[in-house]
């Protein structure tokens, strides 16, 4: 039972990857990337958890607290993921403008 949070993180990650591979719409693909990212957040936060401890905010007084480092890492990751998804969405908009489609298979302009 104690591996459930980790298993959840792994499952979200793998499902997101499946979504990226099988996607036929760039917007859907960008959202699947955010799903994969959520998997990594859950993993990080689960690793830092301590039973019976509270958030690392020591006001008014000190108490047992969970790991603050993974929370800082997750904060950084969220910003990174927002920025990358913004770029991909902008590219999807530009692709739609050029070709009328957001299907990756239809915008494949060159290959080989």
């Amino acid at each position: 039972m104690s591996y459930l949070p980790y298993a959840l993180a792994g499952w979200i990650f793998v499902v997101g990857l499946y979504g990226v591979v099988s996607s036929r719409n760039l917007i859907h693909l960008a959202v699947c990337l955010t799903v994969m990212q959520s998997g990594t957040y859950v993993l990080l936060l689960a690793i830092g958890y301590k039973n019976g401890a509270a958030a690392p905010i020591f006001r008014p007084s000190h108490h047992p607290a969970v790991d603050p480092v993974v929370q800082a890492l997750t904060l950084t990751d969220i910003v990174v993921s927002v920025t990358v998804v913004a770029l991909i969405l902008a590219l999807a908009l530009a692709a739609h403008k050029e070709s009328g489609s957001v299907n990756p298979e239809e915008i494949a302009d060159f290959s080989g």
Partner: peptide, 12 residues
Amino acid sequence: LPDFGHYHWPYG
């Protein structure tokens, strides 16, 4: 991974 809920590393 170590058991969930038993974070014990020195950094945090």
